[in-house]
Write a protein that binds this DNA or RNA. Sequence first.
DNA 1: CGGTCGATTGACACCTTTCAATACGGGTGG
DNA 2: CCACCCGTATTGAAAGGTGTCAATCGACCG
Lengths: 242, 242
Amino acid sequence: MAVKCANCPLRRRELFVELARDEVEFMQRFKVGELVVDPGTPLLMEGSNSPQLYTALSGMGLRYKLLKDGKRQVINFVMPGDFLGLQASVMGEMGHSVEATSRMTLCVFDRSEFWSFFKAHPSRAFDLTWLAAVEEHFLGETLVTVGQRTALASISWALLKLFQRGKQLDLVRDASMALPYRQQDLADALGLSLVHTNKSLAKLRQSQLASWSEKRLHVMDENALAKLAQTDAKPLPRRPIM
Amino acid sequence: MAVKCANCPLRRRELFVELARDEVEFMQRFKVGELVVDPGTPLLMEGSNSPQLYTALSGMGLRYKLLKDGKRQVINFVMPGDFLGLQASVMGEMGHSVEATSRMTLCVFDRSEFWSFFKAHPSRAFDLTWLAAVEEHFLGETLVTVGQRTALASISWALLKLFQRGKQLDLVRDASMALPYRQQDLADALGLSLVHTNKSLAKLRQSQLASWSEKRLHVMDENALAKLAQTDAKPLPRRPIM
DNA sequence: CGGTCGATTGACACCTTTCAATACGGGTGG
DNA sequence: CCACCCGTATTGAAAGGTGTCAATCGACCG
């Protein structure tokens, strides 16, 4: 059965900012139901203007764009709390595709009511803008990584971010978390070849800083990893959840 | 003297969506004045939460992030109509810095009134979200470029985008437009070295597709350029202007 | 006229990609 | 139950795009 927004456990994770009671009640009215999908299921398509609007509740996925020559750029990794479909709602079409990598359950909202956010509940409209800004902020950091860091630093940065995200979502147990992606996915996210990604991951493993194998990420030394990634280990910015 | 929003010529350029009369009047109330800055002037600083909120009226600038080791990633090129300071307004701090590259004039808004957008004028709040989504969309395309394209294709793509932008802003005359950046700026935007950028630009010039020298960009064959860039030449998405 | 900044070039080093081959685990049909 | 297939992970070697180093040149400026 679909969980009531009032009881949504995800909302209380430290990554998210608190919602006022009336905001929660407001959201409940838009929640049409829940959707459970298997790995590999396409959720949103680039260029489309699908009426779906989701918040990921559990499981992971990928945002990506395909080039004409078959290359793929992974834009971001989708984790619980992520809001999907905003671009289509405001711009008229998605700039990227989204698909599930693991089994996922999603909160489904009625997009035909999208406008009510702005008309009837300003604070939720503000949060929508906030969410878009957070995404923009993160893409900027990703751009720095892909553009300026070496392969090893890139991979360290990516694993660190995924781990930090996991921690704030309470997905980490004993310094490790499930990470249901292929090496190819990470390679496509960082603009690296699969082979080089594989070898860099091996180096990381040997250095005892972090290891990712069998769909599970272990981070042994977060600070040293951050140093290798040429970044600070400060926590991710908190964000609203829809 | 500061131009009245009602007479703002920029707003009518084809890049922007129309505003209703009451929206224009609403914006006029937030316009504190205009600011003219010289090349090199910092406008916003990464990590700061400055109270400034601008819309570029003329001139060009850069959004960028600096790494600890001195490297720089240019996030985007600022052109007329761009809204600056949104991230700080919603997230509490800027994720990147912004500085003027040429002489610029900016429309200055009172940020303390930022909330009124959401509270008093839903359609303008919607446009704010729209703007953030456009930025996210563009950053996604940039990521594709930096991550997947070769140097020559990257540069072709960047020049093409700048040119398309220029056309829609009515900055193009005789297939050319002013482009007041250094080669280093483009290199930092694409994650390339200055030397390699220079050599790739020379190739482009020799190929007769486009040439950029003396702060001026000429595009001789837009379609061929798009082909080299492995992209289609479809126009940029229209966006709201604040 | 010396000094600085940006644009150019040539040579060379090297990080990353590409090509190939092997290994391993899971699913499937004989 | 086992052979076979397929997707993913690994490795080694070689090719190549891109970065780094250095020097030159022209334009602008105090």
